[in-house]
Design a protein around this nucleic acid. Structure first.
Length: 305
DNA sequence: ACTACAAAGACGGGCGATGG
DNA sequence: CCATCGCCCGTCTTTGTAGT
């Protein structure tokens, strides 16, 4: 990281302007802008000649070359991000007058089929094992148990657990304010057992010296809010203690959705719990359900079974 | 039903506070 | 004082929304 006094290289100062454009003009959130700038940086190094950025000699084949080399051995999703970010950069360069033509249409498209894989849910007893793997006699266990309850019973995302504020819990109404993906804010009913886990952590597990108003803080000093890896880490550690395969926090969200569909809950209701805006997003779990039924139906009457 | 765009989450590697 | 492990960072992957 360059210090405040160091002179930024030509590409770093261009990238910094690009980042500001993404945030201020395009209105992206910081995490998205970061991903775009990362791609732009990788592209910029291919354009450096004699320590200067050279856009004049840029040709469509250079774009194709870059996408191919950046995507080799990567997932289709990553290739798509590369393409999207590269187009965004080319539009920016054109706006800045650095390239004469908006070359974004010269970037090749990436074919990709969504919903190809199936998210795999945990069995009910495995969720119980995961929860039981938290030693609730310790502060650490109190915290992890409360976080796991939010993930497993309410289907929150890891980031939503991390961002939860003390004031987001409405004990009287039995509701929870959730700050979701895309800067959305919604209220969710707070089941009694989840509320109990939270209350127990707040009374006995959360250090008095905790900084700020976030519910969950680091178990070790400084007792500040967890960063993005913290929640994932707690799930992974519990899975390891329970002797379950490695998993992250999102597995619990999948599990809740799949269990709801399997027990016959209507899709719009599942979508409401997951806070999906489009039913199409939820319908992946309907597919899971059909796959499950197909497996059950495999020993066809009259067959070998 | 497709692609593009956006904003997450997962994960390996390594740092450093902490408690022995 | 030093080994441990919870946590952070960077990179890659996955999930979610919108437009056509």
């Amino acid at each position: 990281m360059a210090s405040a006094h160091a002179v930024l290289s030509p590409s770093e100062s261009m990238l910094e302007r690009y980042r500001k454009y993404l945030l201020d003009v395009r209105g992206l959130v910081a995490t998205s802008a970061r991903g775009y700038v990362d791609v732009a940086r990788a592209f910029a190094v291919t354009r450096v000649a004699d320590g200067e950025l050279d856009w004049k000699c840029l040709r469509p084949e250079h774009l194709i070359q870059f996408v191919l080399s950046a995507s080799r051995g990567r997932s289709t999703g990553t290739a798509k991000l590369t393409v999207t970010a590269l187009r965004s950069l080319l539009i920016y360069l054109h706006i800045e007058g650095l390239i004469a033509q908006p070359l974004d249409t010269a970037v090749p498209s990436v074919a990709g089929w969504r919903l190809a894989g199936l998210p795999c849910a945990l069995e009910r007893r495995d969720v119980q094992r995961l929860l039981a793997a938290c030693d609730r006699r310790t502060h650490h266990g109190q915290r992890d148990f409360a976080m796991l309850m939010l993930l497993a019973r309410l289907g929150l995302r890891a980031g939503e657990v991390r961002m939860l504020k003390l004031d987001d819990i409405d004990w009287r109404a039995g509701e929870l304010v959730v700050r979701g993906k895309g800067q959305r804010i919604e209220r969710l009913p707070l089941p009694a057992d989840v509320g109990q886990a939270l209350a127990s952590y707040l009374r006995r597990g959360r250090p008095d010296t905790a900084q700020g108003r976030t519910v969950f803080v680091r178990t070790r000093a400084p007792h500040r809010a967890l960063s993005s890896g913290g929640v994932t880490e707690a799930v992974a550690a519990a899975a390891s203690r329970a002797g379950l395969p490695h998993m992250g926090a999102h597995r619990l969200r999948h599990t809740l959705a799949t269990q709801m569909v399997r027990s016959g809950v209507a899709l719009p209701e599942v979508a409401q719990v997951l806070r999906h805006r489009r039913l199409m997003t939820t319908s992946i779990y309907a597919k899971v359900d059909r796959e499950g039924l197909r497996l059950l139906a495999r020993p066809w009457p009259g067959g070998a079974a």
